[in-house]
Nucleic acid binder design. Structure first.
Lengths: 204, 204
DNA sequence: ACATTTGCTAAACACTGTTTAGTATATTCA
DNA sequence: TGAATATACTAAACAGTGTTTAGCAAATGT
């Protein structure tokens, strides 16, 4: 029954084809202009075909959402070699901000949009997101254990660090930093300086 | 020529009617389900009529957006009586977080959604937003002048404070705090505790 | 009283996500 | 190999969206 395996493979290939096209369209034209019909035209199939491989549009963007998290976690893991957890935390923070600046659409999908959330509720766990948050939580716990940062509840500290960097980049991405009336590169400098300032203030 | 004035008044009345209906639908059913057709049906006019009073859907939501800012600034101004700027800053922060928890749809429109932005670019200034941010900036400047908080650039401090509270409430509103796997009221407690912790750390 | 402007709407345009019914092709079984 | 079944796919439709156009009454100006 090798046919069944081939069919399984072909099904996965088609899913990949759809995801690749959707990702490309999403990164090039944004979420709104990535319609099922646009994806269908791009892969040269009818729109209805897409629904044979994905339940709905949200399921497609949930996969893209997970891929984006895999990418971020991979970038985080590059700092595994930094033995000092406080320094590692700083590196993770800078990587997070950099990721958001360089991949604003991915960041939006991961931490701002509602689109992939309906799917997350149907999955057993928010795997990728949990992984990224867990990585920060681990590093933070080590910082607290080694008394490298001011003592506090680890969840409060984790939420604080995450909220701070998320606040910085999400206000930037959703164009609220314009109230500063400063050029884009100056705003970015302020964001980076704000992080360094906050990071210093965490120290014991 | 009193007719011209009456017509002007009727035009403003119609605009108010549309805004009232849109606001009500928006707060009850959310942004997506507040369609031009739904508003039209609610006020018992044809959809095309709405376009005689507003350029597009974004312009309607820009007005709602401004009204929401007026409300927030009004809440801020209730703390004018607090003479100590550091204590006033704390009160503003708590009011901000409370506003977001109690009016998540307004908060979303004000600080997360893209909808009213196209309009903001056409206006000479982001009046209401600037007013709210200016209020925080003023209070912060007084804190720095009186050496009540750690010395730093005032813009960096302002962006830090704003980003921190925005990060907290926007992760909550856009349902990312679920990774904590804690009940809703516990998450809110963590948000509030995080703010108090951050607020303390600002002190000289 | 007649001409003009104003206020409004039915209908259409170009989209959207999604579902249904039906058609070819591929696979299975006798 | 030939008939029956299962699979892969799609045209067309449904119900919705924001927005524009053409035309019709009623109010207004002369």
């Amino acid at each position: 029954m090798a046919i069944k395996e081939r069919k399984e493979r072909e099904k996965q290939d088609m899913r990949n084809l759809i995801i690749e096209s959707a990702t490309q369209l999403f990164l090039k034209h944004g979420y709104d202009k990535t319609s099922i019909r646009n994806i269908a035209e791009d892969i040269e199939y009818s729109p209805a075909t897409i629904y044979l491989y994905f339940k709905d549009k949200d399921e497609i963007f949930y996969v893209i959402h997970e891929n984006a998290f895999d990418l971020l976690v991979k970038l985080f893991r590059e700092h595994d070699t930094i033995s000092n957890p406080y320094e590692r935390l700083g590196a993770i923070g800078r990587t997070y901000i950099n990721f958001a600046f360089e991949n604003p659409d991915y960041y939006d999908l991961m931490f701002i949009m509602r689109a992939p959330l309906s799917q997350i509720k149907h999955e057993e766990r928010w795997n990728a997101g949990e992984c990224a948050f867990g990585y920060v939580l681990d590093t933070l716990t080590q910082c607290l254990d080694q008394k490298l940062i001011r003592p506090a509840d680890k969840y409060i500290t984790a939420v604080s660090v995450w909220s701070f960097v998320h606040g910085l980049v999400s206000l930037y991405i959703r164009e609220r930093m314009c109230i500063l009336e400063m050029p884009d590169d100056v705003v970015r400098d302020i964001v980076n300086a704000s992080f360094e300032n906050f990071f210093q203030s965490l120290k014991t």
